[in-house]
């Protein structure tokens, strides 16, 4: 009973928040609706027993990615009317994309239900009492280790690429060198001299 109510609540919120993400006039509101959609999607994943994926969705997407999204969108100076003008032009492409995705989801679920995919059996289903994290870990770090490592490398390349493309060495700045400051002793900077009267100070 509670599960059913929770499912329809989360599912309704995901769809509603998704629609509002697209239709909201203010881009910051759009991002906020997107965050609500992520959040409710995490709720749906908890309901199907994938609590690890749900937590990762909240930590990674809501807690980090969406924060940076919001960060960027907040600082943009966007002309809303200009943003709206392209809708008619881009609509056919959007509809096409939606159709392709919908067809893929239908085919995938149909094939799964028909038993056409053998992966479920070959991947040795784990007993229900094993926690999510252990079940995923034993598969990712043994069977799919190379794919996992490759995914890590792709992310690393993306990260380095972003740094290389955007980094510029600025000349003329004098940044703080903390280790140099810490290493500096009184002897290097202070001299104790007994200055005779009437003579100039050596600089």
């Amino acid at each position: 009973m509670i599960q059913t109510i929770a499912f329809y609540l989360f599912a309704f919120m995901v769809v509603a928040a998704g629609i509002l993400t697209v239709t909201a006039r203010n881009p910051v509101h759009s991002v906020l609706w997107l965050i609500l959609a992520f959040f409710n999607a995490a709720g749906l994943m908890v309901l199907v027993g994938a609590e690890f994926i749900a937590m990762l969705l909240v930590i990674v997407y809501v807690g980090a990615v969406a924060v940076l999204f919001l960060f960027v969108v907040m600082m943009l100076d966007i002309d809303f009317t200009e943003l709206r003008s392209g809708v008619a032009r881009h609509a056919p492409f959007g509809v096409l994309l939606v159709l392709v995705l919908l067809a893929e989801i239908i085919f995938a679920t149909a094939a799964w239900n028909a038993g056409g995919i053998d992966m479920a059996r070959s991947a040795a289903p784990v007993p229900a009492e094993v926690p999510n994290i252990e079940a995923l870990g034993t598969v990712i770090y043994t069977r799919y280790l190379y794919i996992f490592e490759a995914a890590g490398l792709v992310l690393l390349v993306a990260m380095i690429g972003a740094i290389v493309l955007t980094h510029r060495a600025r000349g003329g700045t004098r940044p703080q060198n903390v280790s140099q400051q810490v290493k500096r002793r009184p002897e290097d900077a202070v001299r104790n001299i007994n200055q005779p009267v009437g003579q100039g100070v050596e600089l």
Partner: peptide, 24 residues
Amino acid sequence: INVGLLYILAASSLGVYGVILAGW
């Protein structure tokens, strides 16, 4: 719950939204 620590991490990572929204 099994993912208690991740839940805490998720909750603490959400804390920033109050501040960002207030500021904006």
